[in-house]
Design a binder for these strands. Structure first.
Length: 886
RNA sequence: GGGCGCGUAGCUCAGCGGGAGAGCACUACGUUGACAUCGUAGGGGUCGCUGGUUCAAUCCCAGCCGCGCCCACCA
């Protein structure tokens, strides 16, 4: 006997054990079935998973379980990402708390320390995924810093280098002075900041009374100015082009250059040019052959390229001093408050510094072209499709990707330098040495490039590196052949650029084929007020905490229900409560089944086609519909509709109606056996349909109801039922029954008939069909409507009855004690009035010649039927009212 | 400055060309042997505003108002 409520905690652990014992998550290439592949977006080993991971993995798990149940060879590739900069920061912070630093430890010891952390975080994440009830093919788990994946990284790097798609270049990069590394454009966040525009006077050479006013938001960079630009079309300054200014505080002579970059409309129309510290100025500098003076060190302190008074100052301290000194010289024209966007490093959180360094770049524009074309051609399709705009927009404007990082945690760049700086890019040190020997004609000592690669470089290879590429053994080749490209990628919109686009570029270039067919983009999980969850705000919801309190199935079902495409999710605990209750509801339906013997034995040899009772035939048809709806929703990645459909089917059709309708049948000797079997079957089907979304509950019930002998639910197949199981007559009869019961209940409620009081129901002028239905459903009606007497009568009902129309019949409930003739007549009159009003609207529509001529025939017909039905009901009620009076 | 999206019942959201829906919340009633983590019934909406297209508009188009997100080098 089942407990009264579902106890998720033990059930989840037990179910997961069963799945692992049954190897339920393993791919089955040997079956040679249709294959279905998903590679997991590898979580960062920076700690633990958040609620967004719960959504992302629930969605994937639903697809996996569903496809496995359809009979596919389903492979879900698990793994994690070393997440270079992010993980290094976590460990550095831990060191800091111990009063140590990474430099103190040294590179090797530090990396060892990060590995320790990685093992710890990896274990945490694996546990969390298990608690979520999701089942990837654990035996295949990969890590981006595995030997195999590192080999893939080196291969791709060397190949692209030899193709001249990777190169080294000296130019401005986004430099994070806190983390002391270059970062890519994507890792820069523009933050609106309150600042100032400082207007400085730069005196003309030899004419100290004349000056140009330049404005800047970054006064300290003036120490690196090497020109001032004016627009050559600007009449105010044309004669000044070619002359020199004296750079205040420094004394350097800097030219006035004519460049269209200077906008006459902005500020004074003259703009200071600092080629080493501003991306625009860098270009101006290149055009005019200006000197580039780098005034910062890697921590954004001023270096010895500036006058002594400023050396060693931190950039903001320098700013203050520069302004003070300019003012002291009387060269400060004005200070204007100015709100503007300041670039910040998204990890370090400090303003980034455009910084002149040599870095490795990837020619992204070249790789982007086929990646754009593939989506244009529909080889990869985004869901919802509008995200393709975002993807296109970024790829069409893509800049060279800075892939080198001055970090320790990551894939070391496979480049070695000879004593003269010659660079050898090879797969291994031995190959580099060989290349060097060939180049120099003798052995020379080589030093390896100190930098590591942007973490997204290896993530970009994930769809094929995880299968063992570039391994050449038979197994790897078979896996790649079979499982690449993936079927679906499920991910958040926030990493379309970081990850999806990079996988597309690498996948097409390296493998010659897109890495996945469908990209399912989901939203961000926000709190109930729509605020982004964050630890510091204190509004973050911990998935494990929610699982502890509501069960993993409730959490999954909640997230899936809210996963409307193209929209963020607002998660309120009330929703979790609701779906926890849903789990309890199903549990109790199963409990009812168990109590009535509707378990596996009852369903043995059951053939739904042989069922005769309309109630049973009806629920069988509804089950087919539920399955069809589920399949439709999931094939369109509409997890919200899939969840909503099953919720409605199980709660409102199966529990509210079928179980209630089945109760009298279970007491009826003639119908009991068939009904028991139908109930068992329907519940079994429900468990199958619901399993992808609520795996633990359904698995537990599967075992409890005796299906364990057939194995775990996770490995069952979804049966395909013949459409002939649907029965329109049964549907019509049960619809009629439901309408009748509902009408009775409404009347009882409106008339304040005590719930326990038994009443009579007299159905007059009933057709043979109605009489037959009444006979068949008599027991059910008596029970659900609490009837004393049920009768088909020829005579009109006597006064003192409540009346309503059901189908082509009029029904009367004699309620002499509670009914007031006048009130009842008024009630009926009101209803007739409403019907007539609606009918009048339809009549008008149907009288419109344009409507008749232009609307499709079926629409016209439908309106006619509706009108006829309304008129018939109104007439019937009017007639009944007349009889009431007599 | 460009791009995308959203504004439907008190709340969260479906629906997107032919009868306004769900869940939660709310009100009334209810200890009927599955379930009070429940049941039954009920109230509640000029579908942001203004025009247009159409026989027909919550749904399509345009404009406006309000809100959000992404991208962008303006001093």
């Amino acid at each position: 006997m089942l407990d009264k409520t579902y106890q998720p905690k033990e059930a989840e652990a037990r179910a997961y054990r069963l799945w692992e014992e049954a190897k339920a998550f393993a791919a089955t290439p040997e079956r040679n079935a249709e294959r279905f592949t998903i590679v997991i977006p590898p979580p960062n080993v920076t700690g633990k998973l958040h609620i967004g991971h719960a959504l992302n993995n629930s969605m994937q798990d639903v697809l996996m379980r569903y496809h496995r149940m359809k009979g596919d060879d389903a492979l879900w590739m698990p793994g994690m990402d070393h997440a270079g900069i992010a993980t290094q920061m976590v460990v550095e912070r831990a060191l800091e708390a111990e009063g140590r630093s990474r430099t103190e430890l040294g590179r090797d010891a530090f990396v060892e320390r990060v590995w320790d952390w990685t093992r710890y975080s990896g274990e945490t994440i694996r546990d969390q995924l298990r608690r979520l009830g999701v089942g990837p093919d654990w035996a295949r788990e990969r890590f981006t810093l595995d030997d195999g994946l590192s080999e893939a990284v080196r291969r791709v790097f060397v190949q692209l280098y030899k193709e001249e798609l990777i190169y080294k270049d000296l130019r401005l990069v986004n430099w994070d002075p806190k983390l002391k590394t270059a970062i890519s454009d994507l890792e820069v966040q523009q933050r609106e900041t309150n600042g100032n525009l400082w207007h400085f006077r730069y005196p003309l050479e030899g004419e100290p009374d004349r000056y140009l006013v330049v404005a800047t938001t970054r006064p300290e960079t003036m120490l690196g100015d090497t020109a001032v630009a004016v627009n050559p079309e600007d009449p105010r300054y044309q004669d000044l082009i070619g002359k020199n200014l004296v750079l205040p505080l420094v004394g350097r002579l800097i030219p006035i250059v004519g460049d269209a970059y200077a906008d006459p409309e902005t500020g004074s129309g003259a703009v200071k040019i600092t080629p080493a510290h501003d991306f625009n100025d860098f270009e101006v500098g290149q055009r005019h052959g200006l000197a580039m003076i780098n005034i910062f060190d890697e921590t954004a302190h001023l270096n010895d390229k500036v006058p002594e008074a400023y050396r060693g100052l931190e950039r903001f301290a320098a700013r203050k001093k520069v302004v003070e000194d300019i003012e002291a010289f009387g060269l400060l024209e004005q200070i204007e408050p100015h709100r503007h966007m300041v670039p910040h490093g998204d990890r370090g959180g400090v303003p980034i510094e455009p910084f002149l360094t040599e870095q490795w770049y990837l020619d992204a524009a070249t790789l982007a072209k086929p990646a754009i074309a593939a989506v244009e051609k529909g080889e990869t399709v985004f869901h919802p499709k509008q995200w393709e705009n975002t993807y296109f927009e970024w790829l069409r404007n893509i800049q060279p990707w800075c892939i080198s990082r001055q970090l320790w945690w990551g894939h070391r760049i496979p480049a070695w330098y000879g004593p003269d700086g010659t660079c050898f890019v090879e797969l291994t040190e031995a190959e580099a040495e060989a290349a060097a020997r060939a180049h120099y004609g003798k052995d020379e000592p080589l030093t390896r490039d100190q930098d590591v690669l942007d973490t997204w470089f290896s993530s970009g290879l994930w769809p094929f590196s995880t299968f063992g590429w570039p391994g050449e053994d038979a197994e790897t080749q078979a896996d790649l052949q079979r499982y690449y490209p993936g079927s679906v990628l499920v991910t958040g919109f926030d990493i379309i650029f970081f990850w999806v686009a990079r996988m597309m570029m690498f996948g097409i270039h390296i493998m010659g084929e897109v890495p996945f067919k469908d990209v399912v983009i989901h939203g961000l999980v926000r709190d109930k007020n729509g605020k982004k969850m964050s630890k510091s705000q204190g509004n973050a919801m911990d998935p494990l905490d929610l699982i502890d309190r509501y069960g993993c199935d409730a959490l999954r079902f909640t997230l899936l229900s809210l996963a409307v495409p193209g929209r963020d999710l607002k998660l309120a605990e009330q929703r979790l409560e609701g779906y926890r209750n849903f789990a309890t509801k199903i549990w109790n339906a199963a409990r009812f089944a168990e109590m009535n013997g509707a378990t596996r034995e009852a369903g043995e040899g059951f053939d739904p086609a042989g069922v005769t009772n309309p109630v049973n035939r009806w629920i069988i048809g509804k089950t087919l519909t539920a399955q069809a709806d589920l399949e439709k929703a999931l094939s369109a990645y509409r997890f919200d509709e899939a969840a909503g459909g099953l919720f409605h089917f199980i709660w409102h059709q199966l529990c509210d109606w079928y179980i209630e309708l089945a109760k009298p049948l279970l007491d009826d000797e003639a119908a009991a056996a068939e009904t028991r079997a139908t109930l068992a079957w329907t519940l079994q089907q429900s468990l199958l349909l619901l399993h992808p979304m609520m795996p633990s509950l359904t698995e537990t019930l599967w075992q409890e109801l005796g299906y364990g002998e057939q194995g775990v639910l996770a490995l069952q197949r979804l049966p395909q039922h013949p459409e002939s199981l649907r029965d329109a007559d049964a549907d019509a009869e049960i619809d009629w029954l439901i309408e009748l019961v509902s009408a009775m209940r409404t009347l009882r409620s409106e008339m304040n008939v005590p719930p326990k009081a038994q009443v009579d129901l007299l159905v007059s002028e009933a057709s043979d069909l109605t009489k037959a239905r009444m006979a068949r459903q008599a027991d059910t009606l008596r029970r659900l409507a609490r009837l004393e007497r049920l009768e088909a009568v020829a005579e009109p009902p006597a006064a003192g009855s409540a009346l309503f129309v059901i189908g082509e019949a009029t029904a009367a409930i004699p309620l002499a004690e509670v009914i007031d003739l006048g009130q009842e007549r008024a009630r009926l009159q009101k209803e007739v009035g409403k019907l007539e009003k609606d009918a009048a609207k339809l009549e008008k529509k149907l009288a419109n010649a344009d409507f008749l001529a232009k609307a499709p025939e079926e629409v016209v017909e439908e309106n006619r039927e509706r009108l006829a039905d309304m008129q018939a009901r109104a007439a019937r009620l009017t007639q009944a009212m007349a009889r009431l009076a007599s």
